[in-house]
Amino acid sequence: MKQIYTIARKEFSDGLRNRWLLAISLLFAVLAVGIAWLGAAASGQLGFTSIPATIASLASLATFLVPLIALLLAYDAIVGEDEGGTLMLLLTYPLSRGQLLLGKFVGHGLILALATLIGFGCAALAIAVLVADVDLGLLVWAFTRFMLSSTLLGWVFLAMAYVLSSRVNEKSSAAGLALGLWFLFVLVFDLALLALLVLSQGKFNPDLLPWLLLLNPTDVYRLINLSGFEGSGNAVGVMALGGDLSLAGGLLWLCLLLWVVAPLLLAYGVFRRRAA
């Protein structure tokens, strides 16, 4: 326990020192405020429109951004230590590989959680203060859900980054693979799903397709954030499929949580086999 704390503490203070935490929080805050006020510009309106529209836009943006940031934060977690010669040294310490990995996850995870809380929290605060007749209950509920799920999404990609980092022998290959992973889940997966839908010409069992969305954590994340608003009709693209998915919100959360745990276990398995 103490070992996990020591490793986590170092990772977290690294995040403070190289201003990662500050930069991510600032980025989130600026984008969130920008989207809240300018998000409706396309439809000819200026200023805050509605909470569901704001959350939908924010979620679309976070789907791109959060995984990228998480991957950047963690891609060199193991391979970077190896290149600096500290991995071998750490492994001669009274510290198990599981503790090292978990410590890194706690440290990185805390940075992401705090940045999400500070960045998007500021935006929520700005809306609460500056917009006149906003439904405060709905605002708090929607933003809490949004921030929680964004943090979980970040953790999913942290865990995936550890898998890559434990597998490769060079930092540059870890970076390349991380970009590939981002591309796969954020862009390619949905396109492939749409292509499948079009090419199958209805022969593909339509009941099965929505379930495929659960294979992509970013889709699970968007489903969580798009659901639950009354009369929301802004689900577009593959998200429209989610409407057919009679999945309870709790199951979606569980699914996202599984997406954190499974890659983390995989990372541990891969790291254990890595030669010192």
Binding site: K2, T6, G84, L89
Partner: peptide
């Protein structure tokens, strides 16, 4: 170890403190 570069962003004192904590 033969070749160890440690953590470039930490100071010598911080590096040693980190390792001291790990070693109890």
């Amino acid at each position: 170890p033969e070749n160890v570069t440690f953590y470039p962003q930490l100071s010598g004192r911080e590096t040693l403190r980190h390792f001291a904590r790990l070693k109890d």
